[in-house]
């Protein structure tokens, strides 16, 4: 398959659904993005096991920024991704260099230093996810997952074996309500999910 251009990737991320997944597939398997994550891992932690975490977290942040319109297209996506993984590496892996540091010409002013939430590593974030979803049924999780990915209610119904669009809509509403209730009863974790991602 022909690689997507930056513009096409941005459109795909914003469109959601299968297009978004294809964009993620391309970026995840892009050798140059992986290499940038490697550089960051090597520069800040020296541990290649962090490469996979950096790559995934970097892509997560890139997706969020693109969705929120915070990527202004003044650079290429690859350069933007490079700066993201460098920031992550600098903030999370170089614990001895928390405040206003200059490593390899990359100066990031962290006036107050990173918060506890900032310091959470990708694996820890992933583990934290289990909390609110531990009591939720698998179908509920799938419906919410597809919904968040931007799939239409019709597609969600097909993918999860629900009767029709309306059933998918109701399921999503109930599952999301259950999750909100859980968050309301667990304000500490909720705060982390609200601010820390």
């Amino acid at each position: 398959m022909k690689p997507l251009t930056d513009k096409e990737i941005i459109q795909a991320i914003r469109a959601g659904g299968r297009a978004q997944e294809e964009a993620l597939r391309q970026l995840y398997s892009n050798k140059e993005y992986r290499r940038l994550a490697e550089f960051a891992a090597r520069s800040f932690s020296g541990n290649a096991q962090d490469v996979e975490d950096l790559l995934q977290e970097g892509l997560w942040i890139l997706f969020q920024k693109v969705k929120k319109g915070e990527f202004e297209e003044r650079s290429t996506l690859k350069t933007f991704f490079g700066s993201i993984v460098n920031h992550i590496g600098l903030n999370k892996y170089s614990k001895q260099l928390r405040c206003s540091v200059a490593i390899a010409g990359l100066t990031i002013a962290t006036e107050e230093g990173p918060t506890e939430e900032d310091m959470l590593l990708w694996k820890e974030k992933t583990a934290l996810l289990e909390k609110p979803f531990s009591t939720m049924k698998e179908k509920c999780q799938s419906v919410l997952e597809y919904w968040a990915c931007g799939y239409s209610m019709k597609e969600i119904a097909e993918l999860t074996g629900l009767k029709d669009e309306m059933a998918a809509k109701n399921k999503k509403k109930n599952c999301l309500k259950a999750l909100r209730d859980w968050m309301k009863d667990h304000p500490k974790t909720a705060k982390w999910f609200k601010d820390g991602l």
Binding site: Q20, E21, L24, Y28, Q56, L59, W60, F63, Q64, K125, T126, L129, P132, F133, Q141, L144, E145, Y146, W147, A148, C149, L176, L179, R180, D181, W182, M183, K184, P187, T189, A190, K191, W192, F193, K194, L197
Partner: peptide
């Protein structure tokens, strides 16, 4: 706050699912 947290958590879970 709870709604926002739920939304973010779902988005994060969805991203993990895609990966």
């Amino acid at each position: 706050d709870a709604s926002r947290a739920a939304q973010n958590a779902v988005e994060f879970m969805a991203f993990q699912g895609m990966l």
